[in-house]
């Protein structure tokens, strides 16, 4: 189990962090995922890979946590990019030919804005984008993790990307 933890904890933590948006919660959810994996190891039949099974548990926990957090009004997901912060990303796009402190700072700012936009998506949309575009899972793996049909993966992913594009639109121009 120790080797499995070392092997997967970073990827799982990173994905959960992108879904729930808070490092403390992500660490605790990652820990809880491994505890649940141990609890239910008898139920793992090997029909899917351990990796997708682990992520199924982790993503489910993260989504449940997000919906509970939203229901209890623990924090507002509207607290990301404020109106005053919306400005042209075109002006902030770094020049790839040079790496300097300014470019690094611009990259950080860009990442911050993308993450803030990601936070504004619905939980299910955010999860599918994280799994596909950040975790680089195949459609089949995403279907396995989220327990949805392949066709649903395609349509949900498309809608999520459209919603994110909409949110980022103000910064593209």
């Amino acid at each position: 189990m120790g080797r499995l933890i070392v092997k997967y904890q970073d990827r799982l933590y990173n994905a959960i962090l992108k879904i729930c948006g808070n490092s403390d919660d992500a660490a605790e959810l990652t820990q809880e995922t491994f505890v649940k994996v141990l609890e239910n190891i008898g139920a793992f039949r090997g029909q899917s890979s351990f990796y997708t099974w682990l992520f199924r548990i982790g993503v489910n926990l993260a989504l449940n946590f997000c919906s509970r957090k939203l229901r209890l009004g623990m924090c507002s997901l509207d607290g990301g990019v404020g109106e005053q912060e919306k400005f042209s990303l075109a002006a902030n796009l770094p020049d790839k030919r040079e790496i300097n402190p300014v470019a690094i700072a611009q990259n950080r700012e860009l990442a911050r804005q993308v993450l803030a936009a990601l936070e504004k998506l619905e939980d299910n949309q955010r999860a599918i984008i994280v799994l596909r575009d950040i975790e680089a899972m195949s459609y089949e793996e995403i279907a396995e993790v989220l327990q949805i049909e392949l066709g649903t993966v395609k349509s949900r992913l498309c809608r999520a990307r459209m919603a994110l594009r909409e949110l980022l639109q103000t910064v593209w121009i």
Binding site: M1, G2, I5, V6, Q9, D10, L12, Y13, N14, L17, K18, S23, A27, T30, Q31, F34, V35, N107, L110, A111, V114, L115, L118, I129, D133, I134, A136
Partner: peptide
């Protein structure tokens, strides 16, 4: 852009906490 987002490593000590 999404692919180039920084990959966050798990906090130090998480392995120990999980174990």
């Amino acid at each position: 852009l999404l692919q180039s987002l920084p990959v966050e490593s798990a906090p130090a000590g998480l392995t120990q906490e999980i174990q």
